[in-house]
Write a protein that binds this DNA or RNA. Structure first.
Lengths: 226, 226
DNA sequence: GACATTAGTCACAATATGTGACTAATATGC
DNA sequence: GCATATTAGTCACATATTGTGACTAATGTC
């Protein structure tokens, strides 16, 4: 449907890196495309070719809806990539990363499939770069944008939230510290629901609800500089 | 020189937002271009039109060398912008922000001029957006990339460094806290030079020299979430 | 009912940050 | 020379934040 006629030269494409948590790590959505005349199949990042007069955000929306299926998926631009070949032959890829909540990671047909980042099929150099930079972007923006909340369902337990942060940060967090910082920022509000997950004490469900945005004005952090 | 023939349709351009400190704020480099047949002149962000087989970073380098004059200017991609018209008629602008050290803000000819951000000439909507996002990007990445150091000469006093941070953050910092954090991170190394700037005690000159990169592993910060 | 398991909280220690006051070294004015 | 202004640099202490283990709570399993 978004496939362009072979003869027309493409200017650029909007490529989407859709991520979702799975098996305690991240998974990315890939699409199977036939190369040439059924010569071979390969997995590629879903993309939308540039069309006249359509903005980048709209093109990203198209690609997300076509591949993930859902409409209200949080996404943001990562950047533009020109190095290496693109499977669709585009000179330039504008990359958007989309965060698909846990449990909503459906598949829009046999040609789409989620792959754990640790079990990727071979990709072209540009695709690998785009994927890598998208994951980096998500991790770098972790405490600037609510990315962890976009990877969780609407309601979640605090343990689930902590596990998500641990997944994204790649390190363990201490329960008491985590919760103290969380309540200090007034970022989540409790619901009156509880979830009993097998054994152990039931956990209260929370939802993401930024109350007051009182941006902290602390000193400069030099310790993060690369 | 980088001007494209009128008949040829441009795919995309690489637009450069060159910033330098001036008068205790930031200034951006603009270029004066004649519209059509001398109909009018307008100030625009310098750009390079896409050429066959040239990567984005190379195009950014061209634009920087052509406008700022220096070659080793730190720069990074900000993103892609498609909304609103571009003075060169490009569908898509890939924006790079370049940081020009204080004192090296030369001009490459009469058509180039530095403008304080508070005294900008009228720009198109897309250009305003690109400029705004570039400044935001610089400020957001302040404690992830050494942007303050790229806006200073190779050697500088600690007071100058603090003033640069204050300029970028838009708020005052306490001297003792600032220096304590700085030495704790071992980010600068003293030279054996001192600068006597009129009255007052002479200040020791330092250079940026990241010794050990021991990334701090502190708790999660929820207080910055938007 | 003993035990394992997960949720949630607490108190204290360790560390980091905010702050004013201090000393040091220069220029200026008299 | 000498008092004073000005900027650099440091210190000590108060306050705030974070790290941590141990605690209580609520459930399921045996």
């Amino acid at each position: 449907m978004t496939r362009e006629p072979r003869g027309k030269r493409q200017h650029y494409t909007v490529d989407v890196v859709a991520l979702t948590p799975r098996d305690n790590q991240l998974a990315v959505l890939l699409e199977q495309r036939s190369e040439g005349r059924e010569k071979s199949v390969r997995w590629v990042l879903p993309w939308s070719a540039s069309r006249n007069g359509e903005g980048l955000d709209d093109l990203a929306q198209h690609a997300i809806r076509r591949s993930v299926g859902a409409a209200s998926i949080w996404n943001t631009q990562v950047g533009a990539f020109s190095e290496g070949p693109h499977p669709g032959g585009s000179d330039l890829s504008i990359v958007y990363v989309a965060l698909v909540p846990m449990g909503e990671a459906t598949v829009q047909g046999d040609e789409f499939q989620w792959f754990l980042l640790s079990e990727l099929p071979p990709l072209t150099e540009r695709q690998n770069q785009m994927l890598q930079e998208s994951v980096n972007a998500v991790r770098d923006r972790l405490d600037l944008y609510p990315v962890a909340f976009r990877l969780l369902p609407a309601t979640f337990t605090l343990s689930e939230l902590q596990h998500m942060y641990e997944l994204l940060l790649g390190r363990r967090l201490h329960k008491a510290s985590f919760r103290r910082a969380l309540t200090a920022a007034a970022l989540v509000e409790p619901t009156d629901e509880w979830r009993s997950e097998g054994r152990g004490r039931p956990a209260q469900l929370f939802r993401y609800g930024p109350r007051k945005r009182r941006r902290a004005r602390r000193g400069v952090r030099f310790d993060l500089l690369g």
